[in-house]
Structure formats: structure tokens, C-alpha cells
Design a protein around this nucleic acid. Structure first.
Lengths: 145, 145
DNA sequence: CTATAAGATGTATTTATTATATATCTTATA
DNA sequence: TATAAGATATATAATAAATACATCTTATAG
């Protein structure tokens, strides 16, 4: 049971930008800070841009910044938005071949559990995972000026 | 976000055996009923046997049956037991390379969400996902005697 | 007005994980 | 003692995810 790195990186980018406040950051800078693939991060950033989580400013002296306040970005919504596939077992998706699907209650039960998972995430915003006292520590860990 | 087929098949095997009551079923028969890989199912069955969920009887006229009552098999416990890896994001596992792990609260939040996921599954037993009225339908779908 | 630094996009490759297949061994019973 | 069942180990295939590469677009500094 995993969440893709795609979603993980989405969260990390937004955390980074939240710590930088209004200052612009480049993709290269963020990739270097975390030591992860710049190319992969580009696609993550583009999706976050398309979905309105951040602003991407092209051209020389361009860069990225959060589109709004960290308090306005809900973790549950973000994870639902970036993670693509919540088909926990075969019968959730298309092309289900399980012969008992029509009578089996497993899907309903797992669906309920998944809702409960998100209900917890829905209680937190980006600001909550960067709590006050810890923000300074994270800023240092990322070498953000 | 997925649960492996390994876990899915574990659940299906136990459902099958629950529907057959005390009668023995063979791996071949279960694999054929669901139209899935017999070889893969063998490993699933062996783990279920090792963990005490079912009894495997070797030799001619052997087969499988539930070790206890369907009411005694908790879905949450079963999923925890068969699904191997709950490292939702990188920082849950070993070899975590994320530089902000020590200050970041994401792991705690995702951990809480995962607990909530299982808290729901913990409320159900194998018997609950084969409810009375539906059991007959499932028996027909599986072509069980 | 042009060189450069930034993001945007599409495709290809690599890697990791999951699923399946094959082969051989063990056990029990007719 | 032949056969039908599960047990075990290894190998291969399929799928999904992550990363790399190449090229295009945009904006600003000089």
C-alpha cells in the first residue's frame, strides 16, 4: 500500500514554497535541495500549476511560488488531486474480472475505510504539516536562505 | 494507492471457503472459479495456512477449509497480516533520503489516516462481507455445488 | 534585438514491483 | 505403489513508476 512519489513530491514542493514565503524558487533549486530528479519534478510542478496550487513564472528571473496561503491548501484535497488511482482492489477499477463482484461486500467496506483515511487528511492543511516551531528547523535542513 | 492482488486473493480464498462451509475445496477449484493463476494462489494459500487462517490437508482427497468461524476472521487483521508494505511515502521506510523528515509532520498525519483506515476494517469480519441474503448469490456466481 | 534563464511538453528508457510460470519435492490415501 | 493433493524454490513476464533526454516557449536583462 503506497502513495506514489509523484504525490510525495507534490507535497514536498508545496512545503518548500510555503517555507520560502513569497520569494521565488526554481525547480532546479528544489530538486537539488531534496536531491531528487529535476525532470520528474518538472511534471509535478506543471500539474500543480495547472491545478492552481502554485504560480509558475517563466523566463529569466522566473520561478515558483505558492498561489495562496498555506492554510488554504488542504492535504486531503491535494492527495485526492495528485494521486491518480484509488482502485484498492481489482473490483474498484474498469475491466474487473472478479466473478463475485455483484454480491461481494468487500468493495463497500474498503471504500468506507478509504473515506475514513481521507477524512483524517481533510482535517489538515499545508500549514499544519509545517508547524511553527519546526519551520525554522526545516528551513535549515533545506538550506533555504 | 493499491492493495496487492496477493491480499485480494487472500480475501477471495477465505470467502470461498466460508461459502463452502466445512466441505473441502482444492486450490485448482478455487483458481478455476475465479479464473486466476493457480500458481499464485498456491503461495497465497500457503501463507494463509502458515498464519492459521485455514487448514490445508495434503494427499489424495485433501483440500482446504477455514480454520475457524468466518465471524472470527477480522478483515483489518487479515489485511495487516497479508499486505506487506504500508510505507505510504518514502519517509515511512528504511533508506529514507528525504532531508526534512526530522521536522516534517506529514508522516504523522499520514500515519493517523492509515490508522483510521484500519479502524474501519477492524469493524468487519469475513462473515460481514458475505451477508446472509447475498451468500446464495455468491455461491451461484462461483458455481459452488 | 538577441542571448540566456527560466518553465512546458512529449517521448524514451530504466528501474522496481507485482504477478505468473515452471520444476521439483512431500504427504497421504485408495 | 500410483495418484492426487499441497509445499517450496527459482525463474520469467507484465505492469507501473520514476527518471532521462530532447526540443519548444516565454520573458527579461543587457
Amino acid at each position: 500500500m503506497h502513495i506514489t512519489r509523484y504525490t510525495d513530491y507534490s507535497l514536498r514542493v508545496l512545503m518548500y514554497l510555503a517555507l520560502k514565503d513569497d520569494e521565488l524558487s526554481t525547480i532546479r533549486e528544489i530538486a537539488d535541495s531534496y536531491g531528487i530528479s529535476k525532470n520528474h519534478l518538472m511534471k509535478v510542478v506543471q500539474e500543480l500549476n495547472n491545478k492552481g496550487y502554485l504560480q509558475a513564472i517563466r523566463g529569466k528571473n522566473g520561478g515558483l511560488r505558492l498561489a495562496g496561503a498555506a492554510e488554504a491548501i488542504n492535504i486531503g484535497a491535494l492527495v485526492r488531486d495528485t494521486e491518480q488511482d484509488f482502485a484498492l482492489v481489482e473490483c474498484f477499477g474498469e475491466g474487473d474480472g472478479c466473478v463475485i463482484t455483484s454480491a461481494c461486500q468487500l468493495k463497500r467496506v474498503l471504500g468506507e475505510a478509504l473515506e475514513s483515511f481521507f477524512a483524517v487528511l481533510d482535517q489538515y492543511t499545508l500549514a499544519d504539516i509545517l508547524p511553527g516551531g519546526k519551520a525554522r528547523v526545516m528551513t535549515r535542513l533545506l538550506n533555504i536562505g
